[in-house]
Structure formats: C-alpha cells, structure tokens
Amino acid sequence: MSAATATLGTTSLWDKVRTYSPPPRFLPLIVTIALFAGMFGAGSVRYENFGDPQVFLSLMINNAHLIVLAVGMTFVILTGGIDLSVGSVVAMSTMILAKTLEKGWSLPVAIVTVLLIATLLGTVMGLLIHYFDIQPFIATLAGLFLARGVAYLISIESIPIANETFMKWAYEPITLWSTYWIRWSVVVALIAVAVAAYVLAFTRFGRTVYAIGGNESSAMLMGLRVGVVKVGVYAVSGFCAGLGGLLFALNTPSGNSLHAVGMELDAIAAAVIGGILLTGGRGYVVGALVGVLVLGVIQTFIIFDGTLTSWWTRIAIGVLLLVFVVIQRLMTRRQT
C-alpha cells in the first residue's frame, strides 16, 4: 500500500512507464487484445489484403449487432447471471420491425415499439429471476422460447423490409478517410459500448452490478439496491437484444423467425473470450467488444484462407472458449 504513495513527485514519467505492470484485473483483457492483434497480424502476413484497414472495418460492420448483444450480455454476466434469450429476441425484433413497417407504421414508432417490447421481455425475465428465485438459465430459456414463438406467430415466412429511410441507414456508407468507410450500425454499436462502459464504471447502477457479481449478500448488507439492479441488467440485456435486432435488420433487411439461431452462444462466447468471468464481478465491456472482434477475425481468417471450410469457425471458437474457460477456472481457483 505504501508503494502507491511513494511514486509522487520525484519519479519521472519514464520511470513510471518503465516500471509499469498492469494490475492483474486487466490481464485477461490484455491477453484478449493481444490475441486479436496477433491473429490480425498473422492474417496480414499470411494473406494479401488482410491487413487492409477496410477488412477491420468490415469486421465491425458485419458484427455490429453482435457487439450490442455482447454489451447487454456483459451486464448480465457481471451479476453472475446468464441470458439465453438474446438470439431469439433478435429474431423477434426483426419480425416486429418488418411487420409494423409493412403495416405502414412510421419508422420511429416501429423502432420504439421494438425496443420497448424487447426491454419489457427482459424486465419480466429479471422479475422472475429476482422475485421468484427462478434460475437465470431457466427463466431466460422461457424467454428464448417466448420470443421465438412470437416471431413465428407474426409470420412463418420471411418479411422483407422496404422502408426507404431504413434502407438509406442500412446502405449509406460513412466515409472515414480516403476510401475507408463504415456504416451507421457501427456507430450505434460503438456508442452502445461507450455508454455501457460509462454506466458500468461511473454510476451507482454500474458499480452495484459489479458488487452483486462479487458477492450478492454482501451487496445487500451494504445497503445497495440489489433487486432493482438485478432486474435492471436483464432489462438492459433485453434492450440491447432489441437494438441488436435492429442492427441485424440493417445488415439483412428482412424479418425472419429463423434469424440469429444460436446467436446467444456467440454473445456468451464473446464475453467469455473477452475476459468476463461467468461467475460474475470481473471483466470490462471493452472485453466483450474485443471478444466479438476475435470471433469476427476467426471468420475472416477462414474466408481468406479459402481451403478451410466454414465449420472450422465453430471448432475454433469452441477451442478458444475452452482455453479461456480453463484459464478462468485456474484464476478463480488460485484466489480461493
């Protein structure tokens, strides 16, 4: 403890940089960032054009919806919970959006409706979990079935989205510099990450999320509003799933009940790979972002390679997941 006070005044900036060692809590995040950089670097060396910044930007564009899902999942996992419903909620959201637009609702109203319904579903799951002690796994499993069912109920067929404004958002490129561009979905996703990072780090809600994940009964004894926050994280996750659905529709402009099957697994995998401890309390939302990028870079790798088939993606994700799960286990074992 005295080391911190000794560094004042006399030590130069260079000394600080030279002797800097990251706190252990950043280690998983740093490992993931290094992993991403390494994979991206390896790809650049191995394949032509892999190192082109547009490849990275496309990675963001293609996975914008997943980034938002992973952000929501981060909130839930940080409290020690899990949300299996997000993939289905994405499908339901695309369906609601497509159907309402088809019925001639105005775009803003349709969007608000989607976000409200998704948030409401999340809130209900949160209430079941907190007030009736139903395990998060099973409560969100019900949510999974419900959202998928609602999607099917709206229509079994795929509904195209033909709203002009929406299409403009979907396809209008935002030029960053020279020929490099992104789409609006990336902007939304990055804003979501930024807002989530601020909320988690600098608000009572966010710190309570960490406190619950660290030790729920302690958080209760500390007088924190555990109930509100526990319900709140599922509402946040629901909202993010709805938003993710909207972004998904930007990439694939249609409503379809078969969209995003198993996407909850990708979101959970991204969070785990991003260094967020599934037992709760540890990890950063930036980790979830990097986790998504790692998943994306695997995909890009396989596309660029050409000889590798698409199913290697899943196997590679599985292996990565295994590695991180084992590392997490070793970390928690050391601490206890």
């Binding site: 099973i138 499993l141 019900a142 949510g143 419900l146 099917y152 109920l153």
Partner: peptide, 16 residues
C-alpha cells in the same frame, strides 16, 4: 410454430 410460445408458458408455470 406457436409451439414455442406454449413451451415458454409451461416453463414459467412449472417454475412458479
């Protein structure tokens, strides 16, 4: 396809 909806209801009912 509405099967899923009913399953959701059943899950919640059983858990409650």
């Amino acid at each position: 396809e509405a099967n899923y909806l009913f399953k959701a209801v059943v899950v919640v009912a059983v858990c409650l």
